[in-house]
Design a protein around this nucleic acid. Structure first.
Lengths: 350, 350
DNA sequence: CGCTGCACGGAAAACGTTTTAAATTCTGTG
DNA sequence: CACAGAATTTAAAACGTTTTCCGTGCAGCG
């Protein structure tokens, strides 16, 4: 055959278009400096004269040099990667995506990339954490839905691995977290129902094993006791229950004697399900009963303005978590790396 | 001071617990083989005897060896990374997360990791694509919401970079894609409304610049023409409009003369907004008007069973995209790498 | 002039892997 | 028993960085 025989065509097709990627060597040759010097100049090391430093930066910018992440990682042991553990329950309503957008914003000007590690196992995702620690897959970890003695947190603490949780724990060793003040939410939501003149209030709580179950319960009970109002708490149901289960529960309960007429819903789905359940029984929102819901997107209030909402800014939470994690990785003391978002902390930033 | 002076403590604190991480060298020393041989044995190269291959695998498993991704990447130029471009519009209702879970499932047994590149710029995210191509940040790309002559697709095609889109384009050069048959959806949804005896149908279309706008429109119009039924198409509104805008539009329109009584809603949010808008005017779903909606989570039918829904399985789409991308990277001909999910393609897999 | 000290820059090793090219062992055969 | 050829195994280079350690050249000083 008369085709050109390029012997090096056995070269196993590296990433496409990786051909003439500029490296330190390229810059070194162009400037006549040594690779070492170029590396130093770009790293703004002190022993490089202002002059050559400037020249190197110019050339680098000109040819569009970007350091090879693999080489940096291999050499330094730092991955420049932040990993987000995604929980199956975060699928709905863009919980994960909101947080990730916030995170991404916080990491935007840094060398860090965001890699997502979804959890398949139904239990906790401690295996994923272990994998990441053991194999140095990331420099830091972000996850949510903490339990009081969360095994992931324990593992990370034991290994001194940087992480920030969304949610608190009850370990005596402190760690970085961002949390929403769910006590305040539940208290305030219940207060508002009471102020509206509701007779009997109820709340759909998160699963018992999660830390913020207690916070919510406490806020709710405090408001209830202060007002001396009637209340009930469904115990066959939680925030993770499927929407139809919540809807059916609400429908059935509101057909029985002495049903609640004030609902604190710590999630948009549960609020929507409650509305449907109640309207199935002919009750109308705003006159015969009220809902105060937690809202994490603009969805609920846009769709049904009669639901009163209290906002939780997940994007801000994500951004805060990113910042805390960077500080944590930089070695700042953990004690200062805790944030409690109050319900009025942030409002929709479209 | 009497503290132990470990001279090598200047070692700049590599990733924690990266201390005794086993490498090829470790295995080589344990087995008495050369590093090369170990590498080959683990790679199941043909020229290694069955005997040593087994022995090496045993030792590797025993000490929990995992290859160093940075070193592999540096050497081979392959990143073992798949990047997902996340669009801001995918924030709501876990669109992104569903697809990512599907993707993650497809990549589960492969060495590939999933890294998400959110788009901040408001326009298209062609910059991100360019960055990824130029700097070899990934071996393949996944994104959605394609336009007929999507600049991202053009760029990727020009560079021969592997990718799979969610949605089709109109380039003459073929490329891998997974798409939902939105023509079929719109046709079927409209048919159902007609069969229910609706007088006048309408549909909320996706933004005009997206490819599937045409598909939807075509399906809708075909059904309308076949039946010779009255119809209208709002032109100040699209699927990306905020929910309150949709709600207000529906409310206003249903107060004017000759309003539509059959709604095809290609999204859950628009369906919910429509319900609210109509019920504000006192119309009740299922008797005075009907909705057929596209559903991508279990949410809508669980909350409001009176809405008729047609399911789009985004998780399956994500999984399919992952598989196609792997095949594409492996060099299979692009012509075979296209999938059109029919509406009945997959049903909720909880 | 011979030193010391400093400012600046460079050579070389190393990170863990893959790959090329070559060396070694093994097998059967004449 | 020697040897070709196959079957295994190996040494060494390379990927692009960072870092340790060292070499210049030059100013100042006695």
């Amino acid at each position: 055959m008369s085709r050109i025989e390029k012997p090096a065509d056995s070269e196993p097709a590296r990433s496409p278009s990786r051909a003439g990627k500029p490296t330190l060597k390229t810059i070194a040759e162009m400037t006549g400096l040594a690779i070492t010097t170029v590396s130093r100049a770009l790293g703004n090391a002190p022993q490089i004269s202002e002059n050559t430093r400037r020249r190197v930066h110019e050339v680098a910018a000109e040819i569009g040099y970007l350091p090879d992440r693999a080489a940096q990682r291999l050499k330094t042991g730092r991955t420049n990667v932040i990993s987000v553990l995604l929980d199956p329950h975060e699928e709905i309503l863009g919980f994960g995506t909101s947080i990730m957008h916030g995170l991404a914003r916080a990491l935007q000007t840094t060398p860090y990339h965001l890699i997502v590690t979804p959890n398949f196992l139904d239990g906790s995702n401690v295996d994923a954490v272990n994998y990441i620690i053991r194999n140095g897959m990331a420099d830091g970890l972000i996850f949510s839905r903490t339990e009081p003695f969360d095994p992931r947190v324990r593992l990370l603490l034991e290994n001194g691995f940087p992480f920030v949780t969304h949610g608190r724990t009850e370990f005596s060793t402190p760690h970085a977290f961002v949390d929403y003040d769910n006590y305040a939410f539940a208290y305030e939501a219940t207060r508002r129902l009471i102020v509206k003149g509701r007779r009997k209030v109820t709340i759909i709580l998160p699963p018992k094993r999660l830390t913020f179950h207690q916070h919510m319960l406490h806020g709710f009970m405090t408001a209830v006791r202060e007002a001396g109002i009637a209340y009930e708490i469904p115990d066959t149901l939680d925030l993770d229950s499927p929407a139809d289960m919540i809807r059916d529960y609400v429908r059935r309960r509101s057909g029985e004697p002495d049903p609640p007429d004030g609902f604190a819903c710590p999630g948009e789905v549960s609020a929507l399900a409650t509305i449907t359940g109640m309207s199935d029984q002919g009750f109308t929102l705003g006159t015969e009963y009220d809902i105060v819901a937690k809202q994490t997107s603009l969805l609920l209030s846009q769709i049904q303005p009669k639901v009163e909402t209290i906002y939780e800014d997940l994007k801000a939470a994500g951004e805060a978590m990113g910042q805390l994690l960077l500080q944590r990785i930089a070695g700042e003391p953990v004690e200062d790396l805790t944030i409690l978002q109050s319900p009025q902390f942030g409002f929709p930033t479209p």
